[in-house]
Amino acid sequence: MFRWVLAIAAAVVGVDQATKWWAESVLADESIPVLGDLLVLRLTYNPGAAFSIGARYTWLFAIFAAVAVGVVVRLARNARTRGWAVALGLILGGAATHLIDRLAREPGFMLGHVVDFIDYGGLFVGNVADIALFVGVTLAVLLNLRGSQITRRDTVDFPPNT
């Protein structure tokens, strides 16, 4: 299942980064209404978290994304069902691509702004990684509510014995 997680995560990163490249090249000087004012493609750069909260703490979001990637990889190595592989792959891909933005985009390392371009009726602006994170977390919650475990209890030693 770990290969599925990595493949899904890689697909999310690829699609997210490609759509961000597209948005930067096409939407720099214009907005494109998709569903009137309800859904508009509009380029923004987000230094903070959701709704640009914490814009002065971009470096902290980079650390959080790196920790999230590590935790999800650890969990995903022991995933035993397709549902969990999909959920963890979506979460890993979303967290990884946000980490890439924080590390590699302007204004610099650990301070990079996330490229957002999907405006949801003026409520918030997001990107493909945000969609993947939302769907992945929602799926994980539903799997958990159904009683599905990521792994068998006897296959994970967490915290590890030393």
Results as ranks from 00 to 15, higher is better:
Arg80Thr: 07
Pro107Ala: 00
Leu38Trp: 13
Trp84Lys: 06
Ile63Ala: 12
Ala96Asn: 12
Leu145Met: 09
Asp116Asn: 12
Thr162Gly: 14
Thr138Gly: 13
Leu145Thr: 00
Phe134Gly: 14
Phe134Tyr: 11
Ile150Met: 05
Val72Leu: 11
Tyr57Thr: 06
Arg102Gly: 12
Phe61Gln: 09
His98Asp: 03
Arg152Gln: 13
Leu92Gln: 08
Pro159Leu: 13
Val135Gly: 11
Arg74Ala: 15
Ala62Phe: 07
Leu60Arg: 05
Thr155Tyr: 09
His113Cys: 09
Val141Arg: 01
Ile32Trp: 06
Gln17Met: 11
His98Lys: 05
Met110Ala: 11
Val73Arg: 03
Arg77Asn: 08
Ile53Val: 15
Ser31Ile: 04
Leu111Thr: 14
Leu103Ser: 00
Ser148Ile: 01
Arg153Ala: 15
Leu39Trp: 04
Arg105Met: 07
Trp22Tyr: 12
Leu103Gln: 05
Phe64Met: 14
Asp157Leu: 05
Ala104His: 10
Val15Trp: 04
Trp22Ala: 11
Asn127Met: 11
Val73Ser: 02
Asp29Trp: 14
Leu39Gln: 03
Ala65Met: 00
Tyr57Trp: 15
Gly108Glu: 01
Ala104Glu: 01
Leu60Val: 13
Pro107Trp: 01
Ser25Trp: 12
Ser25His: 15
Trp4Leu: 11
Ile32Asp: 10
Leu6Ile: 11
Phe61Met: 12
Leu6Gln: 13
Asn78Ser: 09
Thr155Ser: 15
Arg56Gln: 14
Gly70Trp: 08
Leu43Gln: 08
Val72Cys: 01
Ala49Pro: 07
Arg146Pro: 01
Leu111Lys: 14
Gly94Asn: 10
Ala104Cys: 10
Leu38Thr: 10
Ile131Cys: 15
Ser148His: 15
Lys20Ile: 13
Val5Ile: 14
Ser31Val: 06
Ala85Tyr: 02
Ala23Val: 02
Ala87Phe: 11
Thr97Ile: 02
Gly70Val: 12
Ala129Asn: 09
His98Glu: 07
Val15Thr: 05
Arg105Gly: 03
Gly83Trp: 10
Gly126Pro: 04
Val137Tyr: 04
Pro33Leu: 08
Leu133Gly: 04
Leu139Ile: 13
Gly36Ile: 10
Asp37Asn: 12
Phe124Pro: 12
Asn78Gly: 07
Asp119Ala: 09
Val12Arg: 00
Trp4Cys: 02
Ala18Pro: 06
Ile63Gly: 02
Ser148Glu: 15
Leu142Gly: 09
Gly54Pro: 03
Thr138Asn: 03
Thr162Arg: 10
Pro159Ile: 11
Val15Cys: 05
Asp16His: 00
Phe134Leu: 03
Arg152His: 12
Leu123Val: 14
Gly112His: 13
Ile150Glu: 02
Gly126Leu: 00
Arg82Lys: 14
Thr97Lys: 00
Arg82Asp: 09
Asn127Cys: 08
Ser52Leu: 03
